[in-house]
Every structure is written in C-alpha cells, then in structure tokens.
Simulated scan of single mutants.
Amino acid sequence: MLSPVGDNPGMTLSTPPAGAPRTLGVEEEVILLEPETLSPVDVADEVIAELTHLDTSMSFITHEYLRAQVEFSSPVLTDADAADRVVREFRRAMGQAAERRGLIAASVGTPPGPGRSGTAAGERYVRFDTELGAMRPDHQIQGLHVHVAIRSRDEGVAVMRALRPWLAPLIALSANSPRMAGVDTGFASWRTIVGRRFTTASVPPIFADATDYDRRVRALVGMGTTFDTASLAWMMRLAERWPTVELRVFDAQLTADETVALALLARALVETAAAGELPHAEAASHAELVDASVWHAARHGLEDGLVDPATGSQAPAWVVVERMLGAARPALVAAGDAERVDAYVEHVRAVGNGAHRQREALADGAAALGRLLRATFTA
C-alpha cells in the first residue's frame, strides 16, 4: 500500500538472465483483530518490535498505514519452495505474536468487524490521511503485492499493456474482502472498490514505452495522494528501486498456499506476457471495458460472467479463468509451478474464493468467522 519510505527496502530483485526463471518477491499486509468482534486492534508497533528480533529468513517487517497493520516483504525468491517457506515463517511468527495478545492475525482485504484502526505515525502517513478527507474512514484495506523481475522497463511496460484485460479474472479468483466495518458490502472484493478512489487508481493506462511511462508518471506527482512515484496506486506499476513489475491487484489471501500460488501465477503471466503469448482481442483492451470488467469482477467474484480477453465478450467466469491458466501453462511448467497452481485453482473451484468462504463461515456467526481467519492464517 503506502510504504513509509516509498518502495520497501527489504527486497532487492535483480534482472534475470535470459532463459532463467524470473525472480519474484511477495508483500503481505496483515491486520490484527479482536476475536469476538473482529474489530481492528492498534498494537502493530508492539508486534513488529517483537518480530524484528526473531532469527528467521524474513527480510523486512514494518508497519503500514494503519496502526493495526503489519506488512511483510520477502527476500528475493527463485522458486516455490522458498516462497512457501518464508511466507509460512512470517505467518507462524505473526500468528503466535497475535495469540500471545489474545488477538487474531487475519489476512483479509478488509477488516470484517466494526471499528476502525488509527493512522500509523509518520509525516507521510499523516499527509496521506489528510489528503483522503471523507474517504479516510473507508481506507482500511490489506493487499498482496507481487514483484516479478523484468529485463528492461520497456519490457515492463509491454507486460502491463498485455496484462490489463486479465486483471478482472485475477480479481475474481482472489477476491477476499466481502465485509467492511461490520457490514456485508455485497461485493466479493470491496478492497478493489475502495482503491478506485485514489488519485491514480484501478487499471493503469496504456503506455507506448518506458519513456512515455516515466514522462506521464512524473506529471502526476504532486496531484492528490500521488506524493511521489512510489505513491502510484494502480493495480500494477513499475517499481522505482528495482527492475520489477509490481502486481497490486490481489486482496490479502486467507492461506499461505493461496499467497504463494498467486505469486507463482503472477510470475507465469508476466513471462507469458513478455513473450507476447497472452491472447487478447482488441476490443478487450478498450479502457471502458477493462474498467467495467474490474468493477464487475469485484462485485461478483466467480459467481457471474467475466469478459473474456481473448474475445472481448462475456463468458462464464471459470471459462475465462481456465483460458488464463491455459495461456500461462507453458511458463508454469517451465518453472515447475504447474502442480502447485493447479492445486490452488482446484481448491478455489471446490470451496470458493476467500469472499465466499468468509460469508459461508459468517452464516454461523462472528465467532465462526474468527475461527476461520485464525485457522487459515497459519494453515
């Protein structure tokens, strides 16, 4: 979301050599909740102070915009096993720290219970808070961000251009924010809708090349919440410190398996896009259709149709998801990630995305949802 120093310093990805799997990095945002009400509890600084003294391979743990939030940034990752290990190490330590305080560490796109978290300390956050105005009470969101190495910024711009029509199916698959402040929003990903309110929001525009990207981004600095180039809130952007494209489209995920699988899928899609092998119809790239598709996916998740980027027309959600996975399969197989991503997709097909599971648990009361959040965080 909004790092205190712009891009997180805990990750240093390098340009991948030709033919090698692209390196990647994972950033997870977690919120601390009171078990009975599922309301945010502002003790993140205390938890972070404890976690930074742990002897683990965690790269960087810090606070985020909210006093109830903790953000984890992985070290540079080359394979699924490494990603799985560091994400689980963080979640295990974070879960234990929360339990010692009688709290739940939850990986959800929005806090499901009533109450709101305060703004974390720091001039950058205070400035952001002030700029939000009446939007401030709704800005209680957690995301999963995935960095994937690129070989040049021009390649990164081309990747972003190719991925634009595929953001909606990624939202539908990963939606995990149906509730906000104790109310069912009616959306599968309310975090997506909240994020559309920023100065730079939702789907990035089409850029001709890196020079065009840099020129147009510089013109945005100083406008609203875009304090600098690290404040861009698009669903994907080029990182400033590292040679990566950063996918910011995902809600925070219930389980480590989902976090890792989506990171691997993101890497495969970047590889496929860079090779020019992501199918798309010209109509599917039109700004108005891409933007409407994102809204529709955030509203309905996998429970309605999606725009098929290959045809530009609507199709059943799972047809579009399967087309996306089919396009990414060669890259998944080449990196050895196909089995893990397939297992994730079959799990979502069987039990639903996070939004569906949250609603299903809540049918038995807030305590049942709390048990789901606690169990899935460290599962």
Rank of each mutant, 00 (worst) to 15 (best):
E258N: 12
A256S: 15
V307P: 00
A252R: 09
L269A: 09
A263C: 10
V245H: 00
P309H: 05
P316A: 13
G276D: 12
L264W: 00
D304S: 15
Q314L: 13
V249Q: 05
D308I: 05
L265C: 08
L264C: 03
A317K: 05
E246K: 02
G276M: 13
G312W: 06
A273S: 14
T255G: 07
L306M: 08
T259K: 00
W295M: 04
L265G: 04
A263S: 14
T272R: 07
D251F: 08
A287G: 10
D291C: 09
E282G: 10
E277C: 09
T244C: 12
A292C: 04
Q253K: 06
D257R: 12
A256H: 10
R299F: 00
D291V: 11
S285W: 02
A310L: 05
V294S: 07
V245T: 07
A274R: 00
E258S: 14
D251G: 13
D291P: 00
V249A: 04
A298Y: 00
W295T: 09
L247M: 13
L247A: 09
Q314H: 12
D308N: 14
S313G: 12
R299P: 00
H280L: 11
R299V: 01
A284S: 15
L278R: 03
L265P: 01
D304L: 07
A266N: 03
L302H: 02
L265H: 05
T244D: 11
W318S: 11
A261Q: 08
L247F: 03
S293H: 04
V290Q: 04
S293T: 04
V249S: 06
L302V: 15
H286D: 14
V249D: 02
E258T: 12
V307C: 06
G301L: 06
A283H: 11
A263Q: 02
T272K: 05
D291R: 14
A297R: 01
E258K: 03
L265M: 11
A287V: 13
D257W: 00
L289E: 10
